[in-house]
């Protein structure tokens, strides 16, 4: 754990004694955080443990639909963990134990009978590091719909005249355009996706996710490995996507969070959600001293 501790300068560290009070005060404050739209995801008292390691502590927050929610916080504070709870990717980690509730459109995600396939179709995810499949660009995009049986271009489909090649082509173009990648790969759709640059791969992964037509898109530091130009492209995209989708994005970059998000949640070391409010409020006038220190770059 020690290596995930933020590097702090002793003198600037907020007094330990006030931290607890602040927490209680702000916890009430953001709990009543009100937003205009409908609630898409409602998280209530979420605890995550990795073995004995308590990675997320009683996190509650409501995420409004068709907006961008930024998650910020120092490394190791549990942002990725939180994100993975929303589409239950944490189920894959054997040591992880999850308590609490996450509701998608009012339906509990952590209950018996939840169809993980359906859940993940609705809550898509773009990972921290680009992870295209070692297939062609086209196959990467059509992968999801093909697995879900929405598109069939297989041998059998062709033989029986159920071939969806045209629909597939349209889908590929639509998804790639949405991810601002179409112009760059238009004439090499059949090349292996591994040959793309890091930034292109990241946008390909976004396109692959969009092709499944999710309602929520989770993005884990989508721009961490990218140069400023590619980053700007992704940022524009995120803002555009918010018109149709609910976007939750993790970022280490405060300016980025301030630029693209409608509301921001600040996690601090130890897995606590310290403050959650309108982005403007978080960056200009946060309730908590620790959040102010963090977003102004004093620590973390």
């Amino acid at each position: 754990m020690s290596e995930t501790e933020p590097v702090t300068n002793g003198t600037e560290r907020p007094a330990e004694t006030t931290a607890g009070e602040t927490d209680e005060r702000t916890r009430e404050a953001w709990r009543e955080y009100e937003f205009a739209g409908e609630t898409k995801l409602a998280v209530e008292d979420l605890d995550v443990y990795y073995g004995d390691d308590h990675a997320l502590k009683r996190v509650s927050m409501d995420i409004p639909e068709e907006s961008v929610t930024a998650l910020v916080g120092p490394s190791g504070c549990g942002k990725s963990t939180f994100l993975r709870c929303l589409n239950r990717m944490n189920d894959r980690i054997g040591t992880a134990r999850i308590d609490g509730s996450v509701e998608l459109d009012g339906q509990e995600v952590y209950q018996d009978g939840v169809d993980l396939v359906e859940l993940r179709k609705q809550v898509g995810m773009v990972f921290q590091a680009p992870n295209p499949f070692p297939k062609s660009i086209r196959d990467n995009i059509t992968y999801g719909p093909r697995q879900h049986g929405d598109i069939d271009t297989g041998l059998l489909a062709r033989l029986t005249g159920r071939d969806d090649s045209e629909a597939a082509d349209r889908l590929v173009e639509r998804a790639l355009r949405q991810a601002a990648l179409w112009d760059e790969v238009e004439d090499r759709l059949d090349d292996n996706a591994m040959g793309l640059s890091g930034g292109q791969q990241q946008r390909l992964c976004l396109a692959r996710c969009l092709a499944v037509d999710p309602e929520v898109i989770l993005m884990d530091e989508p721009a961490s490995a990218l140069d400023p130009i590619a980053t700007a492209k992704i940022e524009d995209l995120v803002e555009e996507l918010a018109e149709e989708y609910t976007v939750v994005v993790v970022t280490h970059n405060m300016q980025q969070a301030a630029r693209i998000s409608d509301q921001t949640a600040v996690f601090l070391t130890g897995g606590e959600l310290v403050e959650y409010d309108d982005t403007g409020k978080i960056f200009e006038d946060p309730e908590s001293q620790r959040v102010e220190d963090y977003v102004s770059g004093k620590f973390g």
């Binding site: 639909e65 459109d105 339906q107 509990e108 939840v114 169809d115 359906e118 149709e244």
Partner: peptide
């Protein structure tokens, strides 16, 4: 897409 036909993540009781 949000707002489109309400879909459910819980399997129907079968």
């Amino acid at each position: 897409m949000a707002g489109a036909a309400e879909s459910t993540v819980v399997r129907e009781d079968t």
